[in-house]
């Protein structure tokens, strides 16, 4: 007990010791929101000024994500996919026997079943409109994933997981990576560079939406996959 207390105090002191220089350093940083801070004048200014035009999407964030810094986004998509790979490679062998014993209340059950389709439509909306409004593949994908998880809470993880064959699940999860890779390679003939998007607006729009859809579907499937793996419904 005493040792535990000492440990806690030590931890607190350590955290404080870390926090003080961090805060001090942060205070010294150029203030955010000031027009002349380097964070706003340097690259960001360029993005804001001509990003919409060059990046080809009205939502600047999407433009930066899918065009200027597409490689980063590709990397993140891959991190998400790798996270599922990691969980699938590690979890779930021994835990197949246990099932969630407590069924949710009928009200919850009913509400979730009712909400499901709406969530799906909203998710799709967020995905597809990502280049105009806030949102995009990642956010929509999370919504999709949330829908699947909610559904499997009321139905049974196994049932939801069985809705699509195991093989298809994997392809769905990899959609983000594959679509992104394909668009990246298409950049070579279309824009002259890997990860480049063509200058022609229509084509660029199509590719952007394809990217968003890929990321969204892949993200949703990965999130659902994580849940299935943890809930022991992942059939391997």
């Amino acid at each position: 007990m005493n040792r535990r207390r000492a440990g806690r105090i030590l931890t607190a002191v350590l955290i404080a010791a870390l926090a003080v220089p961090l805060m001090y350093g942060m205070v010294q940083l150029p203030a955010p929101g000031h027009a002349d801070a380097p964070a706003h004048t340097n690259v960001s200014a360029g993005y804001i000024e001509r990003g919409a035009e060059l990046g080809g999407s009205e939502n600047l964030v999407t433009g930066v994500l899918l065009n200027f810094r597409a490689l980063d986004t590709f990397g993140e998509v891959l991190v998400i996919f790798t996270a599922w790979l990691a969980v699938a490679a590690v979890a779930g062998t021994a835990s197949n026997a246990e099932r969630d014993p407590v069924p949710p209340s009928p009200v919850v059950d009913y509400v979730i079943r009712l909400l499901g389709p709406f969530i799906a439509i909203f998710a799709l909306f967020v995905i597809v409109n990502g280049h105009v409004l806030p949102g995009g593949g990642f956010q929509g994908g999370v919504l999709l994933g949330a829908m699947l998880i909610l559904l499997s809470l009321v139905m049974d993880a196994e049932t939801v997981a069985r809705a699509v064959s195991a093989r298809s699940w994997i392809w769905l999860r990899a959609t983000g990576v594959l679509v992104f890779a394909m668009v990246a390679v298409m950049g070579l003939p279309l824009a002259g560079y890997l990860f480049g998007l063509p200058d022609e607006p229509g084509l660029r729009q199509v590719l952007t939406v394809a990217l968003e859809l890929g990321i969204g579907i892949g993200g949703g499937a990965v999130l659902a996959g994580l849940f299935f793996a943890i809930a022991g419904a992942d059939r391997s």
């Binding site: 340097n42 065009n67 002259g192 890997l194």
Partner: peptide, 11 residues
């Protein structure tokens, strides 16, 4: 220059 974007803007 990834995507054809010059260093500061692109990667």
């Amino acid at each position: 220059a990834v995507g054809g974007w010059l260093p500061q803007y692109g990667i």
